[in-house]
Amino acid sequence: MTELRFKSVFDIIGPVMVGPSSSHTAGAARIGKVVHDIFGEKPEKVTIHLYESFAKTYRGHGTDIALVGGLLGMEPDDERLSDSLKIAYEKGIKVAFVPESKEVDHPNTAKIKLVKGDHNLTVTGVSIGGGNIQISEINGFKMSLSLGTPTYITVHQDVSGMIAKVTDVFSNLNINIGTMTVTRASKGEKAIMIIEVDERRQRDEILQKLRALPNVDSATYFE
């Protein structure tokens, strides 16, 4: 007899959500929420490129309202999710959906571009089923971020010494860094640090210390 193994209860019953599909609504909302947290402020303009299954069914399955709801900071079970497009409009956020014909590695893929003044962010997210997601690209930098590991993401100014200051926060609290990725738009502009650690403890203290560092615009935690 084959033994079935599940990583969590969500693999069996699915996530708590608003909408018909864990992949097209819950997963999409989580992609949007991650992008919202990384960007750290209200965008002026959002362009969402949709691929394969997302491109074909985004209106019927509510992927559009889910992505925008997440970009507004909503969780998949937020009752306001169904009104997200209206809320974005009322907030003065210009949103455009661009269905793409290009084939990609996963059918539930969205590339989201946010702009506010000279602050730009592009994130590619994939809804892999059961409400689970992966981030495969940030500002053109390829990665495989499943958010199943305790992860901190900082957005900061690209100035000398930032990496040392951030890693000192973890070292001083005896938190081991498993992997670390640093990417930037261009020299001296906005940069992003993605840090996966081995332990979940002292999350609030770490976030407080990261946010207090000079030249750090935002610091967020995911798992």
Results as ranks from 00 to 15, higher is better:
175 I>Q: 06
176 N>L: 04
176 N>K: 08
176 N>A: 06
176 N>W: 02
178 G>W: 06
178 G>F: 06
178 G>Y: 04
179 T>P: 00
179 T>Y: 08
180 M>I: 12
180 M>Y: 13
180 M>R: 02
181 T>L: 06
182 V>S: 05
182 V>D: 04
182 V>E: 00
183 T>V: 00
184 R>M: 07
184 R>G: 00
185 A>Y: 14
185 A>V: 15
186 S>C: 12
186 S>F: 13
186 S>T: 13
187 K>V: 11
187 K>N: 13
188 G>K: 12
189 E>F: 00
190 K>I: 09
191 A>T: 03
191 A>I: 01
191 A>E: 03
191 A>C: 06
192 I>V: 13
192 I>W: 03
193 M>G: 08
193 M>W: 12
193 M>E: 08
194 I>W: 01
195 I>H: 01
195 I>W: 00
196 E>N: 07
197 V>H: 08
197 V>F: 02
197 V>G: 09
198 D>H: 15
198 D>P: 13
199 E>L: 10
199 E>M: 13
199 E>K: 10
200 R>T: 15
201 R>Q: 13
201 R>M: 13
202 Q>G: 09
202 Q>N: 15
202 Q>H: 15
203 R>Y: 10
204 D>R: 09
204 D>H: 05
204 D>Y: 01
204 D>V: 15
205 E>K: 10
205 E>T: 06
205 E>G: 07
206 I>C: 05
207 L>Y: 12
207 L>P: 07
207 L>I: 10
208 Q>K: 13
210 L>A: 06
210 L>T: 02
211 R>P: 14
211 R>W: 14
211 R>H: 11
212 A>N: 11
212 A>D: 10
213 L>I: 01
214 P>V: 13
215 N>T: 05
215 N>W: 12
216 V>S: 02
216 V>N: 01
216 V>A: 01
217 D>V: 12
219 A>T: 02
219 A>N: 01
219 A>V: 04
219 A>W: 03
219 A>Q: 00
220 T>A: 11
220 T>S: 13
220 T>L: 07
220 T>F: 11
221 Y>F: 07
221 Y>N: 04
